[in-house]
Design a protein around this nucleic acid. Structure first.
Length: 306
DNA sequence: TTAGGGTTACAG
DNA sequence: CTGTAACCCTAA
């Protein structure tokens, strides 16, 4: 870890993360133009933002997930150094700088590919569950507690996460993506299109499409720890009016999500749970802004900082 | 303007 | 010297 030329400050990094959250990765000119971040990032160019984001992504990916074919050139004299205990590194290092990733979460290990012909219909939490089961590497399957621990350990989980997870597991099992055997869950052998009830084709198909699009919508409400981190960091740099507006927006979105979920919750309790997650975040945001219970929030979001 | 390969400066 | 992060170059 070097500290070379014009090193990025923590404020700049936070602004960059928040900017990516707001406008998306790749919209660097937009982020730079945003008066929200132009102050902190006034000394940086759009290329600088891009490079910094790449550096952060590389260092974050290096130890948590699979690696890309990136450092293929300088590989001639390094001792392979086999790790007899694969848990050792991942347990200790555990980078908490997970970068917001737009690409679908691929399961590491290479045993399974959840990709359909186009995009994966699976939601983010679904992917998290599958990732947990895959990486837990239990041949007999993983129980709900193990899955919950894995996800909570690597990502931020809402307060009602257990209930959310239960709903999701139930949903995934019912839809054939998971197989439940004696309280343990395994990934279904053929995920792609195993279930295809042709009983009443059109109606079921329509329902399914509605379901997946709804799931995608609510998925955006499930935030990783780093996303929360960036959001709160952004709020700290906001003026009171801006923060209030943002919080109001968050609350409004949560309420809309809940209303929508209630309307369609008859069969989809998973969506309802996701809406509750949205409300949880909105409440967290409100607490932060009101300065009420801030220390508790800090503890949740920044266990080792401050 | 951006994505990606390449280069340079600095820390260990 | 090696690895890393900031910086540079250029095709699309």
């Amino acid at each position: 870890m070097g500290a070379p030329k014009q090193k990025w400050t923590a404020e700049e990094e936070a602004a960059l993360k928040a900017g990516v959250l707001k406008h998306g990765a790749g919209k660097w000119r937009t982020i730079l133009k945003d008066p929200e971040f132009s102050g902190v990032l006034s000394l940086r160019s759009n290329v600088d933002l891009k490079d910094k984001w790449r550096n952060m992504s590389v260092t974050a990916n290096g130890w948590g997930s699979r690696e890309k074919a990136r450092l293929a050139l300088k590989r001639s004299q390094q001792i392979p150094k086999y790790d007899d205990n694969p848990m050792a590194l991942s347990t200790v290092v555990r980078s908490d700088e997970e970068i917001v990733d737009v690409k679908p979460l691929a399961i590491s290990g290479g045993a399974l590919q959840i990709d359909g012909p186009k995009r994966s219909i699976l939601s983010r939490l679904d992917n998290l569950i599958l990732e947990a089961i895959t990486n837990l590497k239990d041949p007999s399957g993983s129980n709900k507690t193990s899955i919950a621990l894995y996800i909570e350990d690597q990502y931020w989980a809402p307060p009602n996460f257990k209930r959310l997870l239960s709903a999701k597991l139930k949903y995934l099992t019912a839809s054939g993506k998971l197989i439940k055997v004696k309280r343990k869950y395994r990934i279904a052998p053929s995920l792609a299109f195993s279930e295809r009830r042709r009983s009443s084709g059109l109606l079921l198909l329509e329902e399914r499409q509605k379901d997946s699009s709804r799931a995608e919508k609510y998925d955006s409400k499930i935030l990783t720890k780093s996303q929360i981190d960036a959001e709160l960091a952004k709020m700290r740099n906001m003026t009171a009016e801006e923060a209030a507006a943002a919080a109001a927006r968050a609350v409004a979105e949560a309420e809309a999500a809940i209303a929508e979920a209630e309307e369609a919750a008859r069969e989809a309790d998973a969506a309802e749970a996701d809406a509750e997650a949205a409300q949880a975040f909105a409440e967290a945001a409100m607490m932060t802004l009101k300065g009420r219970n801030t220390s508790k929030l800090v503890k949740i979001f920044f266990p080792h900082i401050e």
